[in-house]
Design a protein around this nucleic acid. Structure first.
Lengths: 217, 217
DNA sequence: ATTATCTATAGATCTATAGATAATGC
DNA sequence: ATTATCTATAGATCTATAGATAATGC
């Protein structure tokens, strides 16, 4: 949380009132997300973003220093929302039995609902300056880490078989990516599977991984 | 094969000598791939592409009609190379025992070697006009279909347990995507796993999926 | 004559800023 | 006085084409 706030603060502004900065940047991000999803980052112009934010082009540049700043704010906001969604989901899931399956289900639903946003991050992370890209990838790692945490806890309580750290990490990354896969292969998958069927099959697969490892140790 | 050639022919050119068209377009694609990998599609200019191809900007436009045409030629050439790599790999793998594991290994190595190219397709497919995007996604489906074919054959010979069509399809897509995952999460994975270790672990999981399904049917 | 190639540039943007104006608080 | 906002535009591209030139074959 601290590092995220830190990162946002790093983006320069000419405006003194920090509350106002937050409000206007929220307007900017909301407008930009929609434009980027529809047209992509490069085809969206700063003028379009200004207009959709309800600001003049001059005012827009009081709140950011470059177009890339906007892209970073957008990516960071999306990750914050995904992270919140996952954290909430974990909380709900960890109360019931069969926890890992519940966690996967809740997470995949977050991906399903944030389809376009997750896709946007896949497509435009490359357009960020190196410094920002690094921060965005750190967000990605942190979110994956939430899954690592769950698996570790379940191993502790004996609800999952013992696995070494590398295995646990890879399972966590697989969960992340198979959730994303629903978004970036949706053009195919949604024609052949319902989201529920997709979740069922992939869950079986991921649990199979844990079992496969267990029988090998 | 026919449909691929068809697609290329669809791109208009002012040049009559079709052999020359092929030569020049190969120059253009080779130059553009490098530029796109380094700078992305939007930041690469048609002048840069012309210069790197050894053509004038005027000549470049004799061989294509728009910058997007170049991106399509690039994506299509990459897919052709991936498909050839996978087809070759299948041929080698299907001779030995433990075929599915061999296929996965060979395919993941193709991904490893074509890292930047696969990444490029993930990032820039969105920049294609709809008509071209459709063709590129069809390439992706066709490549995934190669895996479906192997699994089906192995089920036929009893080397894999019986699975319904939807399960087989999803396993094929998982193989595709977990290979790509090595490219688009390489910034993390390569710091924690060697390519060999990655292949070993993921292979175990994919085989586990077949087993998990089998014990359920 | 026909084909391929080149130079020069039209025409259309786009990002970012300078400098003017309006609003707020002392 | 200070802060926030706006209009107008500098300055820098970039794609795509028109029209001239060179090379090749009849």
């Amino acid at each position: 949380m601290i590092s995220k706030t830190q990162a946002k603060t790093d983006i320069p502004t000419q405006i003194k009132n920090s509350e106002l900065v937050e409000i206007r940047r929220r307007q900017i991000v909301d407008a930009a997300v929609e434009l980027f999803i529809e047209q992509g980052f490069h085809k969206s112009t700063t003028r379009q973003i200004a207009r959709a934010s309800g600001l003049s082009i001059g005012s827009l540049y009081e709140y950011i220093a470059s177009k890339e700043d906007i892209l970073f704010l957008v990516c960071d906001a999306i990750h914050a929302e995904v992270e919140k969604g996952v954290a909430d989901a974990l909380e709900r899931a960890e109360k019931g039995p069969n926890t890992l399956a519940e966690v996967i289900k809740e997470y995949f639903w977050v991906c399903h609902q944030m389809n376009d946003h997750i896709l946007l991050i896949y497509q435009e992370t490359q357009s960020l300056p190196k410094k920002f890209r690094k921060l965005v990838l750190e967000n990605e790692v942190r979110i994956t880490g939430l899954f690592t945490g769950v698996i570790a806890r379940l191993m502790g309580t004996g609800d999952l078989p013992g696995m070494d750290e590398k295995t646990v990490d890879l399972i966590a990354h697989n969960i992340s990516v198979l959730g994303h896969m629903w978004t970036f292969r949706r053009w195919f998958l949604a024609n052949h599977y319902s989201i529920d069927m997709y979740i069922d099959l992939q869950t079986r697969y991921i649990l199979g991984m844990c079992r496969a490892t267990a029988t090998m140790v």
